[in-house]
Simulated scan of single mutants.
Amino acid sequence: MTAKLPEPVTLTGRHVRLEPLDRGHLADLWANVGPDPDVWRWIPFAEPTSEAELGSILDVRLGEVAAGTAVKFAVIDLTSGRAVGITGFYDFRAEDELVEIGGTWYARSVWRTPVNTASKLLLLTYAFEELGMGRVMWKTDALNDRSRNAIQRLGAQYEGTHRREKRRANGVWRDTAYFSMLRDEWPAARERLTGRLAAG
């Protein structure tokens, strides 16, 4: 049976709600993230210095959604009810049962909290159990240790590094680390992630 493609649905879990990204999330995202060099260091855009510049970045992402090449979500922290980051799906192919999770960034205030684990649990559950995907993949800058560690904590397997794959925002070429999780690896990963969230 062919997998289904992701749609702009709302996914709600224990700590976060993922809802389709739109311009209405801009004020929260600017207030919570702002011009933080550590947040923007690995993002393929120059660090925004104003809400208007962040709006231009959102417009690029919303353009990808309009073109059918991405499905983007605002990450809503259920404690505050405010948007604290974005995440989404890319490179989805139903015939190959493949989807990429990417374009993720969060406010520093939710680093090392359950927000990322809860967000990815929602996305992985949707991808494997609702869409019928057989492979979920991630890509990150090979030098971004925080992102690499976060991906591996989800239970993803490191597959290798593509050298000189794309330019960083500063124009320097980056190597890209690839990770994936397969359908038969998902049940064990789901159990670990669910247990981690239940533990605190």
Rank of each mutant, 00 (worst) to 15 (best):
Leu5Ala: 15
Thr12Pro: 04
Pro44Tyr: 08
Asp175His: 12
Val39Arg: 01
Val75Arg: 01
Gly34Pro: 01
Lys72Val: 12
Leu121Trp: 03
Ser56Met: 12
Met137Ala: 15
Ile151His: 01
Gly102Val: 10
Arg174Trp: 13
Phe179Thr: 07
Leu11Glu: 09
Arg112Gln: 13
Asn116His: 02
Ala70Lys: 04
Gly102Asn: 07
Tyr178Gln: 08
Tyr90Cys: 04
Pro20Lys: 11
Asp141Gln: 12
Leu21Lys: 10
Gly55Gln: 06
Met137Arg: 13
Leu11Pro: 09
Ala52Cys: 00
Thr69Val: 15
Met181Phe: 05
Thr176Phe: 05
Ala150Gln: 09
Lys120Pro: 03
Gly24Tyr: 07
Thr69Leu: 01
Ala118Asp: 15
Leu18Val: 08
Ala199Pro: 03
Leu11His: 11
Asn170Glu: 09
Met181Arg: 01
Gly200Ser: 03
Asn170Pro: 04
Ile86Ser: 11
Arg17His: 00
Met181Ser: 05
Gly155Arg: 04
Asp175Phe: 05
Thr69Ala: 07
Ile151Trp: 02
Ala169Gln: 14
Leu197Gly: 09
Thr125Val: 00
Ala3Trp: 06
Leu124His: 11
Trp186Lys: 10
Gly155Met: 04
Leu18Cys: 09
Arg183Val: 15
Leu123Asp: 01
Arg108Pro: 00
Gly132Ile: 03
Met181Leu: 14
Leu121Thr: 10
Arg148Gly: 07
Leu124Gln: 07
Ala156His: 05
Leu11Trp: 04
Thr69Gly: 03
Glu129Met: 09
Thr176Asn: 03
Ala31Ser: 13
Gly13Phe: 13
Ala74Ile: 11
Ser56Phe: 02
Leu26Asn: 06
Asp28Ala: 13
Arg108Ser: 07
Arg41Phe: 12
Glu100Thr: 10
Met137Gly: 10
Thr69Ser: 15
Arg153Trp: 00
Leu123Trp: 02
Ser180Leu: 03
Val39Asp: 01
Gly13Asp: 13
Gly85Tyr: 10
Ala3Asn: 05
Val172Glu: 14
Ala118Asn: 04
Ala142Ser: 15
Arg82Ile: 10
Glu100Gln: 13
Phe179Ser: 05
Val65Ser: 02
Gly103Cys: 04
Gly200Val: 04
Trp42Arg: 00
Val16Gln: 09
Leu143Gly: 07
Asp96Leu: 14
Arg108His: 06
Asn32Ser: 13
Ala46His: 12
Asp141Phe: 11
Pro20Ser: 11
Gly68Cys: 08
Thr194Glu: 14
Arg41Asn: 08
Arg135Cys: 09
Tyr178Cys: 15
Gly68Glu: 06
Asp184Arg: 12
Ile86Glu: 08
Thr125Ala: 08
Ser147His: 08
Pro20Leu: 11
Arg148Val: 04
Leu98Arg: 15
Gly63Ala: 12
Leu123Val: 05
Glu47Tyr: 00
Met137Pro: 00
Gly81Lys: 07
Thr10Ile: 14
Leu54Gln: 13
Tyr178Pro: 00
Ser80Tyr: 03
Gly13Gln: 12
Ala83Gly: 12
Arg146Glu: 08
Arg82Gln: 15
Gly102Trp: 01
Phe89Asn: 01
Phe92His: 06
His162Met: 14
Thr49Leu: 13
Asp38Lys: 10
Tyr106Asn: 01
Ala198His: 09
Gly102Asp: 03
Lys120Glu: 00
Asn116Ile: 04
Glu185Cys: 07
Arg183Ile: 11
Arg153Phe: 00
Pro44Gly: 05
Ala188Gln: 15
Ser147Thr: 11
Pro114Ile: 06
Gly200Cys: 02
Glu129Cys: 08
Phe73Cys: 06
Ser119Asp: 01
Val71Asp: 02
Met133Lys: 00
Ala169Met: 07
Ser109Phe: 00
